[in-house]
Write a protein that binds this DNA or RNA. Structure first.
Lengths: 153, 153
DNA sequence: GATTAGGTTCTGTATTTGCAGAACCAACAG
DNA sequence: CTGTTGGTTCTGCAAATACAGAACCTAATC
C-alpha cells in the first residue's frame, strides 16, 4: 500500500496524541500506521520504510506494543515475514482499563484522608465527596458497557 | 506542620502516580504535599524545606500548577508569603476533563474510518463500534455526575 | 539609600530518552 | 558450508528533561 500525504499527516497526528499519553514517539506512529493501513496487517520492513526509521527502533517499539498486548503478528505459509496488526477487537477491555486507571487516584485520596487531621474539615469533606464519586464511578463502568450494548439493539 | 515518615512515603507514592500521568517528578510531589498537609495551605519555603529541593524548581513547578489551574495561592495581611493550596473544589470539572480527554481518540478513529478502504470490513466494523461507543460515552458523562448527585440524597 | 525577605529568571549540568548503525543470530536456500 | 532474508541486541550519541545554584528583581524595613 502506498501512503498519501493525507495518510502520513494523520499518522503523525495520531502519533502525537499517543505521545501525550506517555508513549514514545515511534510507538504512537506505529499505532497510527496500523490504524490507517488498509489491510490492517503490515510487515516489519513496511513499517521501517513508511516511517523512515531504523530496524532497531521498530523492533523495540513492536516488542513494547506486544508486551502491552496492543499488537500481535501473524505469519503466512512459505513467508518468513511477520505481519503486525493492532488488537482492535480488545477496545472494550482497553478502554475499561483506561477508565479504571484514572479512577486509581481514589486509593491515594483514601490514604490521604486517613492521615489528615480535622484541622480543615471543608477540605476533608470535599476529598471524601471525590472518593465517594470515584467508588460510584467504578461500579458504573460495567453498567455503561451494558447500557451501550442494549441501546445498540 | 512536621511530616512523619508515613506522610513522606505517601507523598512519594502520590508523586510517582502523577509522574505516570506525564507530570514532572517535583510537580507530583508538590500535589502530594498539598494533599497531605493538614492545613491544606503551604508556604513556598515550607515546600522547599519539606521536599528538599531548590527554590527555582519549586517556583517553576508552582507556576506550572497554577497555569494548569490545579493550584492557587492566598496571602495574609501583614505577611508577604504566599500560601499555596490545591483547588480541591474543582474535582468534578477536572475529572470530567480527564474523561473527555481519553474519549478524544474518537476524533482520530473517525478520521481513520474516512481514509480507510473497504479491504478489511471486519477491522472497519470494529472501529465503527468503538467510535459509536465513544459517542455514547461522551453523552453519558454528564448523566453520570447527575446520577451520583441523586443517589447521594 | 542600604538591607532583607520572598520569589523569579538565567545558566549550567547530570540524567534520561529515543533513536541510528553495526554487529549479531537463526532459519532457510543454493 | 556459504550466502541471504528477517529480525534482535548492543553500543554510542544527540537532544530533551529536571533540577541546582547564582544572579536577579521587587517591595517593605531599617
Amino acid at each position: 500500500m502506498i501512503l498519501t500525504t493525507k495518510h502520513k499527516e494523520l499518522i503523525e497526528r495520531i502519533g502525537v496524541f499517543h505521545e501525550h499519553k506517555g508513549m514514545q514517539p515511534l510507538v504512537g506512529r506505529i499505532i497510527g500506521l496500523l490504524l490507517v493501513h488498509e489491510e490492517g496487517e503490515v510487515s516489519f520492513d513496511e513499517i521501517v520504510e513508511n516511517l523512515g526509521v531504523s530496524k532497531s527502533a521498530v523492533s523495540n517499539a513492536l516488542t513494547f506494543l506486544q508486551a502491552k498486548d496492543r499488537c500481535v503478528y501473524s505469519t503466512r505459509p512459505g513467508d518468513r515475514k511477520r505481519y503486525f496488526a493492532l488488537k482492535v477487537s480488545d477496545w472494550r477491555e482497553d478502554f475499561e482499563k483506561e477508565l479504571l486507571d484514572i479512577a486509581e487516584i481514589q486509593k491515594f485520596i483514601d490514604e490521604v484522608l486517613e492521615v489528615r487531621t480535622q484541622k480543615n474539615p471543608e477540605f476533608n469533606c470535599k476529598m471524601k465527596d471525590f472518593s465517594n464519586f470515584l467508588g460510584f464511578f467504578k461500579k458504573e463502568i460495567p453498567l455503561l458497557f451494558e447500557r451501550f450494548k442494549n441501546q445498540q439493539g
